[in-house]
Design a protein around this nucleic acid. Structure first.
Length: 369
DNA sequence: AATCCGTTTCCTGTTT
DNA sequence: CAAACAGGAAACGGAT
């Protein structure tokens, strides 16, 4: 291949995949390992505040949403409260897109546990009254008609089966071509220009935590607008079907979840740029951008192939500011992934690899296509 | 300062 | 024969 052609490919691919560094992003890392957290194993109605935070964080990561625009007050609620929140309200709190996305995902999670719940989640009249009052308190900006659906969410939706096909990941459609699904290290990608143009206005207009990096973000003083589960309990047969994690829940201590929400990016594994496997994944899931560098061999199984191995290596090197990167060296790093089960071996097929169980963000269900 | 992690570099040998 | 694959060993650079 002529070197000019190669450099053209590299420049285009890099420009497409990684357009502009975006310093304001990635201020928050909700979960450095980016897999769904423990919330994924638990009925949303049983989520602790921590679970809710992790869940929001997961979606922030996954959609590469600019977390600094979140109003943290809106994130401080438990699962029951969350489940009681209507789509409209979520959109009001988190914006049309992100709120809608959260809602969609919440619906499918609720549906997943609908059967368990239908027999247990019955609120008494008095509980309903209390709930209604709480909801009024929690959403003072909402009036009459909005609360009806909110209540219905708690009482009715938990028993709705998975029939609302429209909700199933359909939110991905509008993101599909722009989003890099979750990634634990917030490196720049083509999603970011998208981010900045969509994350705007709705959130955080008055949030005290918004951008101030200084001393004012004091979680102790932040308001906690929602708390239902602390005042109301869902009726359950004692000891029956209590779908919650084993043992003692992670030490919560009010507002610590909030703290964690803010801090985790700083404290845990800070961003170190992308990992190789994420880089590869992102090439694959943006086929329109990848200049024929790689292709899926089996999309569902996560099997893929290098078409231009040296070009990919150059691109990787370019990203790491290492002009001497070669496929030979890159492939050594790939082979290290076998042990960690980020990749699986594919025997007898040259330049073919397969994503393993410890990789995320490449599946159809995750990317939406 | 020490250590850990995820590579990067180099190398020898094997397979396709 | 060339290109890939396999992995050991050691070095490296960033982060904790």
């Amino acid at each position: 291949m002529a070197s000019s052609e190669l450099s053209l490919i590299l420049n285009n691919a890099n420009a497409n995949l990684y357009p502009e560094p975006q310093p304001h992003l990635s201020m928050i890392n909700f979960n450095s390992n980016t897999m769904a957290g423990s919330w994924d194993q638990v009925n949303p109605q049983m989520w602790t505040r921590q679970n809710v935070l992790e869940w929001i964080g997961f979606h922030v990561e996954e959609s590469r949403f600019d977390a600094s625009l979140l109003n943290m007050n809106y994130c401080n609620m438990d699962g029951l409260t969350l489940c009681a929140t209507s789509k409209e309200t979520l959109m009001g709190m988190f914006g049309q897109r992100f709120g809608g996305r959260l809602h969609q995902n919440l619906e499918s999670l609720k549906a997943r546990y609908a059967n368990d719940l239908s027999e247990n989640t019955v609120l008494s009249e008095s509980e309903l009254d209390i709930l209604e009052n709480i909801l009024h308190d929690s959403f003072p900006f909402m009036h009459g008609p909005n609360l009806g659906p909110l209540l219905e969410t708690v009482v009715v939706q938990s028993s709705i089966p998975t029939d609302n096909s429209e909700t199933k990941y359909s939110y991905f459609d509008e993101y599909t071509n722009q989003l890099t699904p979750e990634s634990d290290h917030g490196y720049d990608s083509l999603t970011e220009s998208f981010q900045s143009s969509h994350a705007g206005s709705f959130l955080n207009p008055s949030s005290p935590e918004s951008s101030s990096s200084s001393s004012d973000s004091d979680p102790e003083n932040s308001e906690i607008p929602f708390s239902i589960s602390s005042k109301i309990t869902v009726k359950q047969e004692p000891g029956k079907n209590q779908k919650r994690g084993r043992g003692r829940p992670p030490k919560p201590r009010d507002n610590e979840g909030y703290e964690h929400f803010i801090q985790s990016k700083k404290s845990k594994h800070a961003p170190r740029g992308t990992h190789l496997w994420e880089f590869i994944r992102d090439i694959l899931i943006h086929p329109e951008q990848n200049q024929g560098l790689m292709k899926w061999e089996d999309r569902r199984d996560g099997v893929f192939k290098f078409l231009k191995s040296e070009a990919v290596a150059q691109l990787w090197g370019q990203k790491k500011k290492n002009s001497s990167m070669t496929y030979e060296k890159l492939s050594r790093a790939m082979r290290y992934y076998y042990k960690r089960e980020i990749l699986e071996r594919v025997d007898g097929r040259r330049l073919v690899y397969k994503f393993g169980k410890n990789s995320t963000g490449w599946r159809v269900e995750e990317t939406g296509y």
